[in-house]
Design a protein around this nucleic acid. Structure first.
Length: 870
RNA sequence: GCCGAGGUGGUGGAAUUGGUAGACACGCUAGCUUGAGGGGCUAGUGACCUUUAUUGGUUGUGCGGGUUCGAGUCCCGCCCUCGGCACCA
């Protein structure tokens, strides 16, 4: 082996060899246990990857290489989430055709992933914009359609005025488009939906016990938003139907002093009195015009208008006024509420502002309320003071009791409500899988017959979103005009395409059988490979991709196409990578807030093109996410060239725990290069004449320092294995470093030309154990030791538990009144009573006992002696 | 407001069931090696006090209490940071 660790050469050499040997190719083999490891498939952007992206790729790769050494048949595929808004927007910006652009960018991504030596089976590469793929996306759409889970309906939807398309609720983040950050508008349009709401309960129930981060599970539960309560009917004068409300607190019905309906509620027109009409109409039309941002600007200040109408409270026949207010939204519950200001913060604020009565249902007898004060303290305590349940405490039981009571009287019934809305899937955009439906004047909506799939996306030059609410496909007669599969008459194709999240809702299934031309996947292949055993990606998809994919899997399970109903057994979220980035203060002028696009910030990144406009001494540095547009990225190309791929991998794993945010530092990665250099030189010193048989024959005789090293070796093997298994890469690498430091001690003490069996044993295991983390240098050292083959195919070394747990001497801590006063080295197995005796004789202990009385002595076997005195 | 995750040296971060706080690294300091270097090796490094030195002592895991021989870890009450949702009845 060379004295100098020339990583560039080594890394190139082994990447080449792995490729030639198709080392990472996975074949279905029912005789072996499988392990399917996956990272969220990326949309390949033109900016390429940064070292930040490897915060998940590198550790998961180490994990999967470890799994291979553990004997698993590992599937580790990669593909491209190529359809959808991200790719199309980038193509539009660069004035490129996405059809050409995407494969180009994908090739660059693939090159960069290979640069770090990631263990992908490239034979399974897929691209969601490939007709061979989206044909099956369309096929699944039709399956869902057949099952009644895909439907078209006119509904108020989120419209992004910049991207010129509708968006799913999950794609609206804080009232803004997830891609371009512009404020979304509400529009009434016919759109395609997937009936994810039919799975709301199962999507909650099945989270139970899943090996996912608590945060993600909580976010999904929140998003689905189950709440139990009751629907109650209030008779309304002048309306033929009663006004139905949803409440989670039917036990507070006796405290309802008014009602509120959403501005869009149909009852408004029926009940508004002539005197109130102009005011109500003005309020309703203002509410409709108002954008999200106007509403936010008004803060939480309650607004509303009385309709002039009254409703009768079914529990006590009292007439209460009906108001219109925008704090009640049409999309949830029934769009109408009974207001109980004594027990609801919002109702209270409203009542206060408009002088409406506040009637407590529950009161704390020890803490009587004055009439119009917010009885905050009694919101969930006290006992009932009105109605038939006087004296009952305010808790879960009375809610159930009241539901029972109203059901008996036919006033209302217990119901469960969900915040989750159906998944809006149609997009008025070019770059997506066309929805395989044909509209026929005679037959209506007709699904495209399976044998006519795929409905090909036409190749066109101009794919600019039209902004008319119609997809650009609508302007292509060759695409639109077709014949009805049922009656043969003239018909029109659906021109909307599916949003990108449809493609990503099943790609993990396709990886099991990526080249199948006859079906989306063979049952045999998915039965063997699925579900995904380890899924790794960012937390930003908590309620988008991760919810959709679970839904599709359940639907396909119900269709009998899959034998499991949860796609991802284990999920891990990696932390972000930040870079130290110059910025500047935002002037008061800029912060003004008139601009819809500008979120309120006091600091702004200086993009590379802006840096000359601000003198350097005014730059204010902060840690921000690595991003090409901020000019703060380090590319894997640069990192691999300067420090080496292995050092980058070690760095990504070592700096912080897997799920924590990293602050990129050149010093940090240099430390990793140094570490690999130390490993290289250590192995290099002993590689010549290395013989496994030789050390194995002699290692049993090891004693003293050598035996100590053996103990460390076998402990390290166990510890590093456990750490890799549990995604604790940072402590795993630290254990590796400690172990190497211990080897150096033995190596440095060795007479020149002599060998140490314990050291040779450690070296051989070191090379194996380091290989998932730093695979290139490991394979090179392995070869340098006269071994052959790839470590990826080697078994993980078997630690000798007896050696690992053996101790010949123990350090006992001696405390006086719980303060460490001395330490005692004793041979293992020494009787605690004897240790105690010795401990009491230690000079420093004796000093602290002077003039004091020993109350008791606590002895923890093998650990410490604590003398308690007073 | 609600939900989730966290607060440990100059920095990133370690600490099985409560049992030597600060592993491992970065940075820094000193020395050695020396053809320079973001090179290699050795030693030191929480703070404060004490000692010629060895030794020794006090204090220390966001804040305030508590349980315990013993608390970063357990209990009660706060504060702060990050992420998500947000007038969801």
């Amino acid at each position: 082996m060379n004295d100098y660790y020339s990583f560039t050469e080594i890394e190139r050499k082994w990447q080449e060899r792995w490729r030639e040997a198709k080392l990472f190719r996975a074949d279905t083999d029912p005789t072996r246990p499988k392990f399917y490891g996956l990272e969220f498939f990326p949309y390949p952007s033109g900016a390429g990857l940064s070292v930040g992206h490897f915060k998940n790729y590198a550790p998961n790769d180490a994990f999967l290489r470890y799994k291979s050494m553990r004997g698993y048949n590992v599937l580790h595929p990669m593909g491209w989430d190529a359809f959808g808004q991200p790719a199309e927007n980038e193509a539009l910006k660069r004035q490129r055709n996405p059809r050409e652009m995407v494969p180009e960018y994908a090739a660059n991504y693939r090159r960069q992933l290979d640069l770090i030596g990631l263990s992908y089976d490239w034979d399974r590469e897929i691209n969601s914009s490939d007709p061979g793929y989206y044909r099956w996306t369309q096929w699944i759409f039709l399956k869902l359609y057949e099952m009644g889970l895909a439907y078209r309906a006119t509904a108020p939807v989120n419209w992004c005025p910049v991207d010129n398309t509708v968006l799913a609720n999950e794609e609206v983040v804080g009232g803004r488009c997830w891609r371009c950050d512009s404020m979304v508008e509400k529009r009434q349009m016919p759109q395609w939906f997937f009936k994810i709401t039919a799975y709301a309960q199962r999507l909650i129930d099945d989270l139970e016990g899943m090996a996912w981060p608590d945060g993600i599970k909580a976010m999904q539960r929140n998003w689905i938003g189950r709440s139990e309560g009751a629907e109650v009917d209030f008779a309304v004068e002048g309306a033929e139907k009663p006004l139905r409300v949803f409440t989670t607190r039917p036990d507070t019905l006796w405290g309802a002093t008014f009602m509120v309906v959403a501005p869009e509620h149909p009852v408004v027109a029926q009940i508004t009195t002539d005197e109130q009409r102009s005011e109500v109409e003005a309020y309703v039309s203002r509410a409709q015009r108002q954008s999200e941002i106007d509403r936010l600007a008004e803060g939480k200040e309650k607004t509303g208008v009385w309709t002039g109408g009254y409703a009768k409270n079914p529990v006590n026949d009292e007439l209460i006024p009906i108001w219109v207010a925008d704090y009640v939204v049409m999309g949830y519950g029934t769009g109408a509420i009974m207001a109980v200001p004594a027990h609801d913060q919002r109702d209270f604020e409203f009542a206060r502002k408009f002088g409406l009565p506040i009637v407590p249902v529950f009161q704390d007898p020890d803490n009587a309320l004055s009439g119009d004060e917010m009885p905050a303290a009694t919101i969930h305590q006290g006992v009932a003071v009105v109605g038939p349940f006087v004296g009952d405490p305010d808790d879960e039981r009375i809610v159930a009791k009241v539901i029972n009571w109203i059901e008996e009287r036919g006033i209302g019934k217990g119901v469960v409500n969900y915040k989750l809305r159906d998944w809006l899937i149609s997009r008025q955009r070019y770059w997506g899988a066309p929805i395989p439906i044909i509209h026929c004047a005679k037959c209506g909506e007709v699904p495209v017959p399976e044998d006519q799939l795929p409905v090909q996306l036409p190749e066109v030059e101009n794919y600019q979103p039209s902004g008319t609410g119609e997809s650009p496909l609508a302007t292509i007669p060759e695409f639109v005009d077709t014949t009805c599969p049922t009656c043969g008459g003239p018909a029109r194709r659906e021109t909307d395409t599916m949003g990108g999240f449809a493609c990503s809702s099943w790609y993990f299934l396709r990886f099991a059988d990526p080249h199948n031309e006859n079906e989306a996947f063979s049952r045999e292949a998915v039965d063997y490979w699925l579900p995904v055993d380890m899924y790794v990606g960012g937390a930003e998809h908590a309620v988008m991709h991760l919810l959709y994919a679970r839904f599709w899997t359940k639907a396909l399970y119900d269709a009998g196409l899959l034998g499991f109903s949860e796609p991802f057994k284990q999920l891990r979220n990696q932390g972000m990578m930040l870079a130290y980035t110059p910025g500047r203060e935002v002037t008061a002028d800029e912060a003004g807030g008139e601009d819809d696009e500008a979120p309120i910030e006091d600091w702004k990144v200086l993009r590379p093109e802006e840096r000359e406009t601000v003198p350097e001494e005014q730059w204010i540095w902060r840690w921000v996410k690595m991003s090409k547009s901020y000019g703060n990225t380090v590319t894997p190309d640069e990192a691999a060239e300067q420090y080496g791929a292995d050092a980058l991998r070690v760095y990504e794993m070592f700096v912080v725990p897997f799920e924590d945010t990293v602050q990129w530092s050149d010093e940090g990665i240099r430390g990793c290069v140094r570490f690999l250099g130390r490993v290289w030189r250590l192995v290099g010193q002993h590689a010549e004449g290395f013989s496994t048989e030789a050390w194995q024959a002699k290692v049993g005789e090891a004693e003293g320092k050598e035996l100590e090293l053996r103990r460390k070796t076998h402990r390290a093997i166990i510890k590093i294995g456990e750490d890799l298994e549990n995604f604790r890469f940072n402590t795993g690498v630290a254990a590796l470093m400690e172990w190497v430091n211990a080897m150096y001690e033995v190596s440095n003490a060795l007479e020149p030309g002599k060998r140490s069996a314990a050291l040779d044993e450690a070296l051989e295991y070191l090379v194996q154990v380091i290989s998932p983390i730093a695979p290139h240098i490991a394979d090179e050292m392995w070869e340098g030791m006269g071994k052959s083959g790839f470590l990826y195919r080697q078994p993980w070394p078997q630690a000798d538990l007896e050696i690992a747990s053996a101790e010949d001497k123990l350090t006992i801590v001696v405390q006086v009144n719980s303060k460490v006063r001395d330490k005692l080295e004793v041979p293992a197995g020494t009787d605690m009573a004897q240790i105690q005796e010795e401990a009491l004789k230690l000079p420093n202990v004796v000093r602290h006992l002077e003039g004091k009385q020993v109350v008791k002595v606590i002895a923890v076997p093998g650990k410490l002696v604590n003398v308690v005195v007073k």
